[in-house]
């Protein structure tokens, strides 16, 4: 994209103007799409920092790892990844997750009528995922324990060719980005009182190419009103207990008012 720049600057003024205009239009076939609108599916604002194109680039593979030991919040992270794309009209499919919590998906903002579930693909897993990649924008799949590298490479190549986003959920080598929950702590529950309100989740991202530099971000998943990024300065030193004490009035119509005492 910017290969010609050095040569062009030394040329005559008029030529420079014309070639500069061209340079914006012409790019090598191997170069990635400039952050173009429909090539990237939107994600929530606070997750954009983790992904190389500030969204789910079509054709990419965004893995969500389940670390050892497993941290709370992995499933919610998957839901949060899908939410904006689904709200914008994309079709999503979830393969091999029989315990999928549809209520949480709806709360995250996923349109359930555009979300297909294949709870038990069985031994046909590669065929099913390949068929879904052909037609669905975002395919989330739990990765079976035994999966050969050739199968995963083929599926990733198919997603790249068809312009779908593959979100493997489990161990997956060779993803463009791998997101992982490194810490998840619920808040709002005392000893015999309160209720679960929100969870602070620390998500790390590492990957290839533009995403090689590890990143880490803290988000509320789910938040008590809207999910938002915790400022870095707050840091991990903040004790997870004692959330701002609030009274929640349940008014008619299901609306809630937060009252700070």
């Amino acid at each position: 994209m910017t290969k010609h720049d050095g040569g062009l600057v030394r040329m005559a003024g008029r030529m420079v103007v014309g070639s500069a205009a061209l340079a914006e239009l012409v790019r090598p076939a191997s170069a990635p799409d400039p952050a173009g609108g429909h090539r990237v599916l939107p994600v929530r604002a606070e997750l954009t920092g983790l992904l190389p194109n500030r969204g789910l680039r079509r054709g990419s593979t965004v893995a969500v790892g389940t670390g050892q030991p497993r941290h709370s919040g992995t499933t919610s992270l998957v839901l949060a990844l899908l939410a904006e794309a689904s709200r914008a009209g994309s079709w999503c499919a979830v393969v091999g997750v029989p315990t999928f919590g549809a209520g949480a998906a709806a709360e995250a903002g996923i349109a359930l009528d555009r979300l297909a579930l294949v709870p038990d693909p069985g031994p046909e897993w590669p065929t099913v995922v390949a068929a879904l990649i052909d037609g669905v924008d975002v395919v989330v799949t739990a990765v079976p324990a035994t999966i050969s590298a050739s199968v995963s490479t083929r599926l990733a190549a198919r997603a790249r060719q068809r312009g779908s986003v593959l979100v493997p959920y489990g161990r997956w080598d060779g993803a463009d980005v791998t997101l992982q929950v490194v810490r998840g702590v619920w808040q709002g529950l005392g000893s015999g009182r309160g209720r679960l309100r929100r969870r602070e989740v620390t998500v790390s991202a590492r990957g290839r190419g533009a995403a090689a530099r590890p990143k880490e971000v803290k988000v509320w998943l789910p938040g008590d009103e809207a999910t938002r990024v915790i400022p870095r300065s707050a840091g991990p030193g903040v004790p997870p207990v004692a959330p701002p004490r609030r009274l929640r009035v349940v008014a008619a119509g299901g609306r809630r008012t937060e009252v700070r005492p």
Binding site: S76, G101, G103, L196
Partner: peptide
Amino acid sequence: PPPAPAVVLS
């Protein structure tokens, strides 16, 4: 009450 659990065991 919300939030709903993300993993529901059948």
